[in-house]
Nucleic acid binder design. Structure first.
Lengths: 196, 196
DNA sequence: AACAATACGGAGCAGCGTTCCGCTTCGCAA
DNA sequence: TTGCGAAGCGGAACGCTGCTCCGTATTGTT
């Protein structure tokens, strides 16, 4: 269930050349449409933008969630890999933790509708939710544990809840200038700080 | 635009008796369906449960949001009225504020899918969003200001962002036992506390 | 050049919110 | 009681989704 390269866009790509080309075209089109219309843009729009039929899209990406994952995979991976790096290069675990949270929030906030799609109740996007969790939860947990171990924050909140909370706070952060998700997330993680 | 009794279920109800009866039947059916299937339940289900046609539902409640508002109006009003009361009876403004937040969170968390529906990006529910804001934002602002004036919390976060943050944190709180919205909200408002 | 294997396109299905209009029911007036 | 306009009703129908299915076209191998 945690495999990669089978149900989601396979790593090497299909065998035939036209198929590989279409897959890339689709990824580019999807990325473009996601920027303008959000992650929940109609599949037909993406197919039209790519100049392919509906069948093609679903053959390459069995589910809309798979397409979203494929489009953002690199950035999610980058975010995951930034965790250990920050932990190694930051003056304190807490600083690393806060920087990583900032990275995560920036990512979510700049992807129109992604945070909302991540919520489980959104039908058809469970795979997306699961992917983010698989990829980022261990990283978040590591940072959180390190910060707790260094005594800079109160322990007792698990990484899962923290990530869900942060994700939730990012919902609708675009499309509402009065709402500043970064600030609220800062407040939330500020609430974790140990009252020294 | 802030009137009541016209576009949403009118206070006195329609003139004919059958219409008034149907309106009540619809409210009861909707309330029941919301409990079992959530706020985003298909309109057809509600009509079926009430034993009326689609036309009837849309004549009484021009929009699904109007129906949701009508169903929860009493509870929202109660929450709004609790604000001043708490402020008058609590030992400190900050205590009143925290109690009110607790009330608000309890309300949201126990209504399956309501918090999610409140987000603006959810098409067709803008009216719902607006109603909650109209009704609760002044109350929240009053409590927040009082708590800030008493020096118990840091000023600088407006009530709008706070309410949106709380609402967001409540999304998906049901249907996920691992997620405790109350706790995260407590953390968030805890982050507001003045470091005395 | 022939032929599997593979991929493609888009019509079609089911489920949603919402609209529309012919028919029914209500309640008043005669 | 009866007549009748107005108010209300039901559900077929529309447009929009995500997703499936299969006849047709493309590919690359023999």
């Amino acid at each position: 269930m945690t495999d990669s390269g089978q149900s989601t866009a396979s790593a090497a790509g299909p065998k035939r050349k036209d198929a590989r080309r279409n897959q890339q075209t689709l990824l580019d089109a999807a990325a473009a449409v996601f920027v303008t219309s959000g992650v929940e843009a109609p599949v037909r729009d993406i197919a039209a933008k790519a100049g392919v039929g509906m069948g093609t899209i679903y053959r390459h990406f069995p589910t809309r969630a798979d397409l979203v994952i494929a489009v953002y995979r690199h950035q999610v991976d980058a975010c995951a890999e930034a965790g250990p790096t920050l932990l190694a290069t930051s003056p304190s675990p807490h600083a690393a933790f806060e920087q990583w949270v900032g990275l995560f929030v920036d990512f979510l906030v700049t992807k129109h509708g992604l945070a909302a799609a991540l919520q489980t109740d959104n039908a058809g996007f469970e795979t997306l939710h699961a992917y983010f969790l698989d990829r980022l939860l261990p990283v978040c947990a590591q940072l959180l544990d390190a910060a707790a171990a260094s005594g800079e924050i109160r322990p007792g909140l698990d990484a899962y809840q923290l990530m869900r909370g942060i994700g939730n706070l990012c919902i609708g952060a675009d499309s509402d200038p009065r709402y500043d998700a970064r600030r609220l997330v800062a407040l939330l993680v500020g609430g974790l700080r140990r009252p020294s």
